[in-house]
């Protein structure tokens, strides 16, 4: 069953165009969103979060259009990006104390559990955290309100191999609990391990949307990894 649907979403910038992007996310699945830098992954994700004003198309969650149900939808989704630092001079405690007041389903037990799992200290400020710990803090905010859909933009960038491994395990656990995850990354080895489906975007257009097994079968040569297929497709598109 589709829980998130994008239909003919487009956005034109002076030097880039997102062409009629359409795809859907299956409930309780991890979908890898791959594409090279500048392919349109972040623009698509920002459209899904109403951070940018699209030129056309429809976006819906849980059968409700984003336009007109933004508040209700945002209560039920979580977003994390690997690189942004929110309120660098406030403590984690101050940021969380305010953030929790916005969510009806804030889960204090989950928050405590992830604080321990990620090794975060409430008295620290984002400016005092390493890049990897900032990623974990952003994830903590996304995970602590029982989000049914997680939109993760490069969630493993900057993480050490052990933390990445832990995180991928966590995503698999969340999937078992029915959480739907859109996982945008260029680290395709992460998707080899945990993705059920693959969406491939290139030059602002969706080139493939299928299960990981079908992607490997339809686009790959025998023995090719996801990364090798991705690189070959990009080279072919360039030539």
């Amino acid at each position: 069953m589709s829980i998130v649907e994008l239909k003919d979403v487009c956005k034109t910038y002076p030097a880039f165009r997102l062409h009629d992007v359409s795809f859907s996310l299956e409930s309780g699945k991890i979908t890898g969103f791959i594409g090279r830098n500048g392919a349109g992954k972040t623009t698509t994700i920002k459209s899904m979060l109403n951070l940018i004003h699209t030129d056309g198309g429809e976006i819906s969650y849980f059968g409700m259009p984003l336009s007109g149900h933004e508040t209700e939808i945002k209560q039920r989704i979580g977003y994390s990006t690997g690189t942004v630092s929110w309120y660098p001079r406030k403590t984690i405690r101050q940021i969380v104390d305010v953030t929790r007041t916005f969510y009806r389903s804030w889960d204090e037990d989950a928050y405590r559990k992830y604080m321990t799992l990620f090794g975060l200290d409430e008295s620290k400020k984002p400016m005092e955290l390493s890049e990897g710990m900032k990623v974990k803090f952003n994830l903590l905010l996304a995970l602590s309100h029982r989000a049914e859909v997680l939109i993760l933009d490069e969630p493993t960038s900057g993480l050490d191999p052990f933390s990445r491994d832990e995180l991928l395990g966590l995503f698999q656990t969340l999937r078992e609990h029915g959480v739907t995850i859109l996982f945008s990354t260029h680290i395709t080895s992460d998707l080899e391990r945990c993705a059920d489906n693959i969406i491939y975007i290139s030059q602002g257009e969706i080139r493939a949307e299928c299960s990981k097994a079908d992607f490997l079968k339809n686009y790959g040569n025998p023995g090719e990894t996801l990364e090798e297929i991705f690189l070959r497709l990009e080279r072919e598109a360039k030539s």
Partner: peptide, 11 residues
């Protein structure tokens, strides 16, 4: 502090 984007991501 990236406050505008943080706020726009809240419900």
């Amino acid at each position: 502090a990236n406050d505008i984007v943080f706020s726009a991501l809240l419900p």
